[in-house]
Amino acid sequence: MGVHQFSSDPLHRISEYQTAAVNAQIQVHAILAAAGLSAENADELMCAIEAGAVAGAQCQVVEWDGSAPSERGEAYGEGWYDGVTTVCNQLVRAADFLYQQRGGAASTLKLIAYQAQRQATQQAAAEERAEEGSEASEELIGQTLAVCEEHYAAVTGTCSAQWDKELSRELVGVALRTVRLAEREAYPQRLEEYLRGNHERLKQLWRRYGPDGLYPRGVYHLVELPESFVLCERIDNAPLWLQGVWEEEGHEETPLERLKKSWLYGTGDKDGR
């Protein structure tokens, strides 16, 4: 640990010393507690050190007595003496006060325990956030894709021979990264209910934006894939998360953006939803 460079401004420097002292006290109390020293004995040691530091300052001030510039006259010398005496007395009182303080060790240990608990909680939360957004299991991808394929076939009249299975699994995996860990096990059933409830809307999506719809084939090419159904559910329930994962995976933004607009704005009430 290197030597800290303190401020050149006296007032600021004193503040820095105070902060450094508090941090040092916390560390020393933690070390003493780890060594098995009781809070009472730790208080005794710390109070003696603090009082001794002030006593050391008082000894330096005592040495100023008699050092008043003689050319300033007798009155000035008497004022100097009175000033040194006053400062010395105040420092003695401060040393007495610091030595009599008790309870610092117990309070500091409570603070250390609180900080440790808080840090552990923050670490656990960070780990949980890191796990959220992780890749889904192959089993869950397969279950989710099966639900999509069943409803997609019912809506479009197409069959699995026309679908790119490898791409489908990849995009379903992207969508599942936006499903929270606690919800993943039940997600296929939840998706099943969602697709059943939006059956007519999905049919309208296919009629308008599918290969035989209003736009040239390939413009809305995600609509031509069964995994578009799970993407629609995610667009409704986790749009920003989906967009973030989609970009993170390196997929082109335009296809997802087109699917999002067609799903949200092209299958509304005015269009017979």
Rank of each mutant, 00 (worst) to 15 (best):
M46K: 06
M46Y: 03
C47P: 02
C47G: 12
A48I: 00
A48K: 01
I49Y: 03
I49H: 01
E50T: 02
A51Q: 00
A51V: 00
A51G: 05
G52I: 00
G52N: 00
A53Y: 03
A53R: 01
V54H: 04
A55N: 06
A55V: 05
G56S: 03
G56A: 05
A57F: 01
A57Y: 07
Q58H: 06
Q58N: 09
Q58T: 02
Q58Y: 11
Q58M: 10
C59T: 04
Q60C: 12
Q60G: 12
V61H: 03
V61K: 00
V62D: 06
V62T: 05
V62S: 06
E63K: 04
E63I: 03
E63R: 11
E63A: 12
E63D: 15
E63N: 06
W64M: 15
W64R: 11
G66Y: 10
S67G: 08
A68H: 06
A68S: 15
A68R: 04
S70H: 13
S70K: 14
S70W: 05
E71S: 12
R72Q: 15
R72M: 08
G73Y: 10
G73P: 01
G73F: 09
G73A: 06
E74S: 09
E74A: 10
E74V: 07
Y76R: 07
Y76K: 06
G77N: 15
E78H: 15
E78K: 13
G79L: 12
W80Q: 11
W80A: 05
W80Y: 14
W80M: 07
Y81G: 09
Y81A: 15
Y81K: 10
D82Y: 10
D82C: 13
D82V: 08
G83I: 07
V84F: 10
T86E: 12
V87D: 10
V87Y: 03
V87M: 10
C88A: 13
C88S: 12
N89R: 13
N89I: 09
L91I: 01
L91V: 00
L91K: 07
V92R: 08
R93F: 09
A94N: 05
A94P: 02
A95G: 03
A95L: 01
A95M: 01
A95S: 07
D96T: 04
D96K: 02
D96P: 00
D96M: 03
F97M: 02
F97A: 14
L98V: 03
Y99Q: 07
Q100K: 11
Q101M: 11
Q101G: 04
R102P: 04
R102G: 02
R102K: 14
G103Y: 14
G104A: 09
A105C: 08
A105F: 02
A105V: 05
A106Q: 15
A106P: 01
A106R: 13
S107C: 13
S107M: 08
T108F: 08
L109T: 01
L109F: 02
K110D: 14
L111V: 10
L111Y: 08
I112V: 13
I112G: 11
A113H: 06
A113T: 01
A113C: 02
